[in-house]
Design a protein around this nucleic acid. Structure first.
Length: 263
DNA sequence: ATGGCTTGGCTCCCAAGA
């Protein structure tokens, strides 16, 4: 099974690129982030005509996640609300950032973790709170679904080798100690970074700033990930970043990441 | 360079992204 994740930065703007990319690949499940569209305006039919079931959880202008799957999805879980108590969820589901689906006995969770703006800001506190709730959510999900893959835009570079220029990043958003600790707490539930099973060196990135010709200079960050429960991690046979879509005109600022799991 | 692009929105500038 091939499970891909891609922050497309507006599905309506990127529709043709995503379609073209899917036609040239052999993707079973594609997890999208930043679809930036309400559900009734989501361009479902072009993807359905390609053979994908389309599951969407969106809102106006910001955020929004979706799962395209060639395989039947048994149950879809949108937001934290179906899993966590109302006092734990609070208003966190106002922003549409998490959708999960179960295929056979594998649970695939698609997340768009908040950006956080800058260290110490209100949005930064929101990001840390969201990560705490995500940990609670995953703890519950792992009880129901021990075979679990969580993927998406994490907006966190786990280690210095995941940043083109890691110096003086301790107060930088996506690299601060509190963000990395929150991610560690999630990994400590028993989840491991699929990409790092296969690749140890730095210089591999999934996001490049639109400004300052960052992509052509490979000034990027690795912030899009697949984290896997032990059985899936063992069965993973490849995990790689496809930078080709990032070279095209009017690209997303993120590249897709593909994980392959053997049987 | 509190900058540099790109997106969507009660658009002709602004917020947000990362």
């Amino acid at each position: 099974m091939k499970i891909a994740t891609w922050n497309v930065n507006s599905i309506r703007t990127r529709q043709d690129q995503v379609l073209g990319w899917l036609q040239g690949q052999d993707i079973d499940v594609l997890c999208l982030q930043e679809t930036k569209v309400i559900d009734q305006d989501f361009p479902r039919s072009p993807f359905e005509e390609l053979g994908y079931h389309v599951y969407i959880y969106g809102q106006k202008a910001y955020n929004g996640v979706a799962i395209f799957s060639r395989l039947n999805i048994e149950s879809i879980i949108m937001g934290f609300t179906p899993i966590l108590s109302a006092d734990k969820v609070g208003d966190l589901d106002d922003q549409k950032r998490v959708i999960a689906g179960v295929i056979d006995d594998i649970c695939i969770i698609n997340v768009y973790i908040p950006n956080g703006s800058s260290v110490g800001s209100d949005k930064y506190e929101y990001k840390l709170q969201w990560l705490n709730r995500l940990r609670d959510y995953l703890q519950q999900m792992l009880i129901k679904y021990p075979h679990l893959c969580i993927c998406g835009d994490f907006n966190i570079a786990p280690e210095d080798r995941d940043i083109y220029n890691p110096q003086n990043r301790e107060n930088h958003i996506m690299a601060s100690a509190a963000e990395r600790q929150a991610l560690d707490a999630i990994a400590n539930l028993g989840l491991a970074d699929g990409f790092r099973k296969f690749t140890q060196d730095g210089g591999h990135f999934t996001w490049w700033d639109y400004r300052a010709a960052s992509f052509t200079r490979n000034r990027g960050w690795r912030i899009d990930h697949h984290y896997l429960s032990p059985g899936l991690y063992e069965n993973a046979i490849a995990c790689y970043i496809d930078t080709e879509p990032r070279t095209q005109p009017k690209p997303s600022d993120h590249a897709p990441v593909i994980l392959e799991i053997g049987t």
